[in-house]
Nucleic acid binder design. Structure first.
Length: 441
RNA sequence: GGGGCCGUGGCGCAGUUGGUUAGCGCGCUUUCCUGUCAAGAAAGAGGUCGCGGGUUCGAGUCCCGUCGGCCCCGCCA
């Protein structure tokens, strides 16, 4: 007999089926026993005699039985398969589970972060935990679809690089035969140079940052959603493309993940018809006006300021998302394009949402001589970025691009408190599946 | 790298101004129960309070050290 998935039972009333899955819960009434069986489609109730009484949570079972329509008074409206149940005839335990370290039967898995991650193979079975990664899948998939719809070509960026394009402190060194190489902290230089070859490119890949920071929003290994394109008239076009992408992504999440969002009791971030954008100095002025906190000379917004400007955006503009543009030129990498009117500030931007950065982007310098001059001024040796410079030496259109953090979009869309929850196997300074401080002893 | 907080049975927590046998919920074991869907009921097992030292007649409860964890800041996606 071929397997029937849990949710397929509703269409098979009166039929004999074979259900394969995990025991989600067992309710033993003595002469009658109920067992919820979970598979990738969902959960269905199996009803039977005492032979179901020995089943324990997470046992893998094959159950043959008859699908029965439940009487009206026994329908469970909370369950997608609540109108039916499977009357067990044969029960086979394929794999017996040991006693669980915590209760998996709760609607919300009530464990602390270390427990959640220490038992990752197990906690990933919980429906609400799975919902996080369903959302993440849609985020990444819809980024691809958004860029493809705009004629961008996906490419594979290298992870092993020979020099650090954006400063050196936060980069992992890699032993590479007899040479010193690094893990890429961004596909930046590659996506930019590829604009000289393909005009419009994007990539979905891991980037690595050796920043010694342990916060709720930093990881050492993250999924970067990158895009870059040429023949732009101004940085505004780059911002608009990023805006298009995130609107597309959030609309897809809203459409495809209604159930998942409901589990977290949250809706996708509110986006205004046009996402508000303001210069860093304007943002700082607003913060000063609203809070009296004077950060007007700072080169960036502190986390507290980011939260405040997001609050402002939601209250005044009805948007959870807000662009902050024109950061001090010296505070950004050598390739960012200084503003024509005010070269102290550049044509770059961040997208903030629900208090945290989602994206960084901007226009890049396309003129070869200017780029060379900037590289030198920034202390970047031209020999180290030869492959990059080559693209600009032989004709490069005006260009720009942006990069989203996939885990951050997931985290903030669902309102999670820690980015590690939005990562299946998070890497940070103190954890690589196991806690490093524990195994070093 | 700087600062704050925390560490009590498998999990999540409570333990008043230090004072007799350390509590609760979930889970676990046994029993009862034919309609539950976080099933219910009854009984039971399981901790000496991260570790080391100190103060005290007496410490989970105060002090020092140590190990571990969480959060905030710097930096960023």
């Amino acid at each position: 007999m071929t397997r029937t998935l849990a949710t397929e039972t509703v269409a098979k009333i009166g039929e004999q089926v074979l259900i394969k899955g995990w025991v989600n819960a067992r309710r033993d009434h003595g002469k009658i026993v109920f067992v919820d069986i979970r598979d990738r489609s969902g959960v269905v109730q199996v009803v039977g005699k005492t032979d179901l009484g020995d089943l324990r949570p997470e046992d893998v079972v094959y159950i043959t039985g008859l699908v029965k329509k439940r009487p009206d008074n026994l329908v469970n409206p909370e369950l997608a398969t609540g109108t039916v149940e499977v009357a067990a005839e044969k029960v086979e335990v394929v794999s017996k589970a040991e006693e669980l370290p915590f209760d998996m039967g709760q609607e919300t898995l009530e464990v602390e972060l270390p427990t959640l991650l220490d038992y990752r193979a197990l906690t990933l079975r919980h429906p609400k935990v799975q919902a996080i990664f369903k959302v993440q899948e849609v985020v990444i998939d819809s980024f691809r679809k958004a860029m493809q719809a705009k004629d961008f070509m996906e490419f594979q960026a290298p992870s092993i690089i020979s020099s650090a394009p954006e400063g050196g402190a936060e980069i992992f060194e890699v032993k590479y035969f007899d040479h010193k190489t690094y893990l890429a902290q961004s596909p930046q230089l590659y996506k930019s140079l590829l604009v000289g070859d393909f005009e419009r490119v994007f990539s979905v890949n891991k980037v690595f940052r050796a920043e010694p920071s342990v916060t709720t929003r930093h990881l050492t290994e993250v999924v970067s959603l990158d895009a870059e394109f040429g023949f732009i008239d101004s940085w505004v076009e780059v911002k608009d493309m990023a805006e298009y992408a995130i609107k597309f992504i959030l609309a897809e999440v809203e459409k495809k993940c209604a159930q998942e969002l409901a589990m977290f009791g949250i809706s996708v971030p509110k986006v205004a018809d046009e996402i508000p954008h303001l210069k860093l100095r304007e943002a700082q002025e607003i913060i000063f006006q609203r809070t009296g906190r004077d950060c007007r000379q700072e080169k960036d917004l502190a986390p507290e300021d980011e939260r405040e400007i997001c609050k402002w955006s939601l209250e005044e503009k009805g948007s959870d998302l807000v662009f902050v543009t024109h950061y001090p030129t010296r505070a950004r990498p050598f390739y960012t394009y200084p503003d024509d009117k005010d070269p102290e500030f550049n044509q770059g931007f961040d997208l903030l949402g629900r208090g945290v950065e989602w994206l960084t982007g901007g226009r890049r310098i396309h003129d070869y001589q200017t780029l060379l001059a900037h590289a030198k001024e920034w202390g970047v040796s031209p020999e180290n970025i030869q492959i990059y410079l080559q693209a600009f030496k032989y004709g490069m259109p005006p260009l720009g691009g942006f990069a989203f953090g996939a885990e951050r979009i997931t985290m903030l869309t669902l309102g999670l408190g820690n980015i590690r929850e939005a990562t299946m196997f998070p890497r940070d300074m103190e954890r690589v599946d196991v806690r490093l401080s524990t195994i070093q002893k």
